[in-house]
């Protein structure tokens, strides 16, 4: 393996990923690195070496910033283009991509936000990003080998077998819990609408629960009441219908069996389950 090539690629990488640009990188680095850069990048009067490298540096940043903007569209809208640009700059610099699949680049943004000054000033942005991430990643999760469970399959289960009934959630179903409620943010977001200024505060009066799922080709999300979230989590844990009911009633003793069966019917219509074991 060529050490020269390895050194060149490492230097190239440092130059294009320097957060304040190639010229600043060259100004701040040592003489030996500047000389190595001069040997590596051949320029001319029309386009000097640092300017040529800047083309790559700008492409590097804007490509990744665009990926973030595409994956976190509501977050980008809420905080506005200037703050989002600054956030993207920090993220690209501090969390460079470690995957050949660029779509995975932004997966750490929700956790990154948790320790970012923006989150300290506007609490809850990390949670919003986590909900958006779940929506983005639901689109290509593997399809279930078996089709969604239909109402007819449920209706065919004999009454005495219902307590032991198990319904398996499909891989594309996720239940998230947040401390703040974001339906208004999603409802208000429009690509062509101006960003709110200042960023609207969202009170911490949760917990709130969000269901993210996919029909065959489209991703949906919906708020859940706590008892619904508990019921779905019981099913996700492989527990029986009886245990699901217990989990829900524990949170809301006023629930009646008809309500629970209605929820189940809605979730079946949504295609949340890929297997039924009676």
């Amino acid at each position: 393996m060529s050490q020269r090539l390895r050194d060149e690629q490492a230097l190239f990488w440092r130059a294009i990923s320097w957060p304040t640009g190639v010229d600043d990188f060259l100004a701040r680095t040592d003489d030996a690195t500047r000389e190595a850069f001069g040997r590596m990048v051949t320029g001319d009067a029309r386009l000097p070496g640092p300017r040529r490298m800047t083309i790559y540096a700008e492409s590097y940043f804007y490509r990744l910033a665009d990926v973030l903007r595409e994956q976190y569209r509501v977050l980008a809208w809420i905080i506005g283009p200037v703050r989002f640009h600054d956030l993207a700059t920090d993220f690209v610099w501090q969390r460079p991509s470690h995957s050949p699949d660029v779509r995975r680049f932004g997966e750490a943004l929700p956790d990154f936000l948790a320790g970012h000054p923006l989150e300290a000033r506007h609490p809850g942005l990390g949670e919003l990003a986590r909900v958006e991430r779940a929506i983005v990643t639901a689109i290509d999760r593997p399809d279930s080998a078996r089709g969604p469970v239909e109402r007819s399959a449920l209706q065919a289960v004999e009454a005495e077998r219902w307590p032991g009934l198990r319904l398996r959630l499909a891989d594309h179903v996720e239940v998230l819990t947040t401390r703040r409620s974001y339906p208004l943010a999603f409802a208000a977001w429009r690509d062509d609408a101006p960003s709110p200024d200042p960023i609207p505060p969202v009170p911490e009066d949760g917990p709130f629960h969000v269901l993210v799922w996919r029909t065959r080709l489209e991703v949906f999300h919906r708020a859940l009441v706590p008892a619904q979230a508990a019921a779905l989590r019981a099913l996700a844990a492989g527990r029986t219908f009886e245990a699901m009911c217990d989990a829900a009633v524990e949170l809301d003793p006023s629930l009646d069996p008809a309500t629970l069966v209605r929820w189940l019917g809605t979730w079946i219509d949504d295609g949340l389950f890929h297997a039924l074991e009676a």
Binding site: R6, Q9, A10, F12, W13, I16, S17, Y56, S59, Y60, R63, L64, V67, P96, S97, H98, S99, P100, V102, F105
Partner: peptide
């Protein structure tokens, strides 16, 4: 890529 970092370029 170099050193496990991907430029996506």
């Amino acid at each position: 890529s170099v050193g496990g970092h991907y430029a996506h370029d």
